[in-house]
Computed example of a mutant assay.
Amino acid sequence: MQKIYTGKTKDVYEVDEKTVLLKFKDDVTGKDGVFDPGENQVGLKIEGAGRAALAMTKFFYDKLNALGLNTHFVSADLDKNEAIVKKATVFGKGVEVIVRYRAVGSFIRRYGDYIATGTEIPTYIEVTLKDDVKGDPLITKDALDLLGIMSAESYEELADLAKRIGDVVKAELAEKGLELYDIKFEFGLVDGKVALIDEISGGNMRAYKGDEYILPLELEKILLG
Rank of each mutant, 00 (worst) to 15 (best):
A83W: 07
A49T: 03
V12I: 14
E17K: 13
E218I: 06
A55V: 02
T57Y: 09
G30H: 09
D131Y: 06
Y5M: 12
K141S: 08
I4R: 10
S154N: 15
G225I: 01
M1W: 11
A103F: 02
E220R: 03
V85C: 04
E220K: 04
L69K: 11
R51F: 00
L178T: 08
K31A: 10
G192E: 13
D132M: 09
I197F: 01
L69Q: 05
T128V: 11
V28C: 05
A103I: 04
V74P: 10
Y13H: 09
E39F: 11
D132V: 09
K93G: 11
V127W: 05
V42Y: 06
D16H: 01
G148D: 06
T57M: 06
R100N: 12
P122V: 01
K3E: 15
F91H: 05
L189M: 13
E14R: 14
P216Y: 02
I84E: 05
L215Q: 12
D191F: 03
G210A: 07
D36S: 04
K209P: 03
D191H: 07
A174D: 13
G135C: 11
V12W: 14
I108V: 15
V15M: 11
P37F: 00
G68V: 01
A55W: 05
G188V: 01
V34G: 00
K3L: 14
E199K: 07
V42K: 09
Y61A: 05
G118A: 11
F107G: 00
E218K: 07
N81Q: 06
G188M: 10
I165K: 06
V104P: 03
T29K: 13
A116Q: 09
I121N: 01
F73L: 02
F35T: 02
R110F: 12
I214D: 00
V168Y: 01
G166T: 01
T57F: 08
A55Y: 07
G48Q: 05
D198V: 11
P137H: 07
N70Y: 10
I108M: 12
I183G: 02
D36C: 00
Y13P: 02
S151L: 01
G225S: 04
L224M: 01
L189E: 08
K134C: 01
D131S: 08
L178Q: 05
K10R: 12
I197N: 06
G94K: 08
T57A: 00
E82Q: 12
G50Y: 07
I197R: 07
K8H: 09
K23I: 12
Y124F: 14
F60A: 12
R206M: 12
G210W: 03
K170S: 13
H72Y: 08
D211L: 09
D132H: 06
S106Q: 02
K45R: 15
A116F: 15
K25L: 15
F187N: 09
R110V: 03
F59D: 01
V133M: 14
L161C: 08
K10Q: 13
D79W: 13
F185C: 04
S151I: 07
F35Q: 14
E47Q: 10
V168N: 11
N65F: 04
L64G: 13
D191E: 14
E96F: 15
K63N: 03
V90T: 10
R102H: 10
D182F: 02
D145E: 11
Y208G: 05
S151N: 06
D11K: 00
P37A: 06
G48E: 03
T19Q: 15
A53G: 08
S201A: 11
D167Q: 09
D160K: 13
T71Y: 03
Q2F: 14
L69E: 07
